[in-house]
Computed example of a mutant assay.
Amino acid sequence: MGFPSPAADYVSKPLDLNDMLGVTPGDTVLVTNDEGFILLSKSSKPKQGDTMLIQFCGSTQFAKLYGSAFITADGEAIEGEALDDAVVIGKVVNIILSTRMDDIPTI
């Protein structure tokens, strides 16, 4: 028998992305081509200014919710009758950027 190791005071639990990102059962992690990963919530209620993942005119794209319209990344406003063609997939909760992109240096 010996004495307890003083290093035991500094032992921490392993990193868990589910805890760090606040993943709930209604969330989905999707891989994107250009950004890395997104955490998408299908159960949380969107607020003004939230980024949403939508399908519109045969493409999937990110859009911000402002008033009763979606504003896409290229500045197009989807409003009025055009909203009938938009399908909301979910609210973007977190974005995990890829570090392997050459056009966005990290150093």
Score class of each variant (00 low, 15 high):
83 L>H: 05
24 T>N: 08
57 C>N: 04
98 S>D: 15
87 V>R: 05
69 A>V: 02
45 K>G: 08
21 L>E: 08
91 K>S: 02
39 L>M: 10
75 G>H: 01
2 G>S: 10
8 A>T: 01
36 G>V: 05
7 A>W: 04
2 G>W: 13
49 G>C: 14
8 A>H: 13
97 L>K: 06
42 K>P: 07
3 F>R: 08
60 T>R: 04
23 V>N: 03
59 S>D: 13
12 S>E: 12
66 Y>N: 04
74 D>F: 01
91 K>A: 02
1 M>K: 14
99 T>M: 09
87 V>P: 05
75 G>W: 01
24 T>S: 09
50 D>H: 14
74 D>S: 05
10 Y>P: 03
70 F>N: 00
15 L>W: 10
66 Y>R: 04
31 V>G: 12
73 A>Q: 09
16 D>L: 03
47 K>N: 15
9 D>E: 08
85 D>L: 09
101 M>S: 12
27 D>Q: 00
88 V>A: 06
39 L>R: 11
70 F>R: 00
55 Q>V: 12
56 F>Q: 02
15 L>A: 11
38 I>Y: 07
25 P>N: 14
92 V>T: 14
29 V>F: 07
17 L>P: 10
100 R>F: 13
29 V>W: 05
85 D>Y: 09
76 E>W: 01
49 G>F: 09
82 A>R: 00
23 V>M: 07
81 E>L: 13
5 S>M: 00
25 P>H: 15
80 G>K: 06
11 V>G: 01
88 V>K: 09
46 P>S: 04
24 T>D: 11
7 A>M: 07
1 M>Y: 11
40 L>M: 13
37 F>S: 12
41 S>F: 06
9 D>M: 11
31 V>M: 10
33 N>T: 15
63 A>V: 03
37 F>I: 07
68 S>V: 07
8 A>S: 05
84 D>I: 11
14 P>L: 03
30 L>Y: 15
83 L>K: 07
17 L>M: 15
50 D>F: 07
69 A>G: 02
73 A>D: 06
50 D>C: 12
36 G>H: 04
71 I>H: 00
44 S>R: 06
92 V>D: 08
48 Q>W: 04
32 T>P: 14
53 L>N: 02
39 L>P: 12
102 D>E: 14
55 Q>F: 09
14 P>V: 01
69 A>H: 02
76 E>T: 06
80 G>S: 07
71 I>K: 02
106 T>H: 14
69 A>M: 06
87 V>H: 11
85 D>R: 10
47 K>P: 08
99 T>A: 15
107 I>Y: 13
36 G>T: 07
42 K>Q: 12
21 L>A: 05
76 E>V: 07
80 G>H: 09
35 E>S: 11
57 C>M: 14
45 K>S: 10
70 F>T: 02
98 S>W: 15
82 A>E: 00
55 Q>Y: 12
71 I>Q: 01
69 A>Y: 00
56 F>R: 04
53 L>P: 00
27 D>E: 03
82 A>T: 00
58 G>F: 05
13 K>E: 06
93 V>K: 13
105 P>Y: 12
54 I>A: 01
89 I>Q: 09
101 M>K: 15
16 D>S: 07
85 D>K: 15
105 P>V: 11
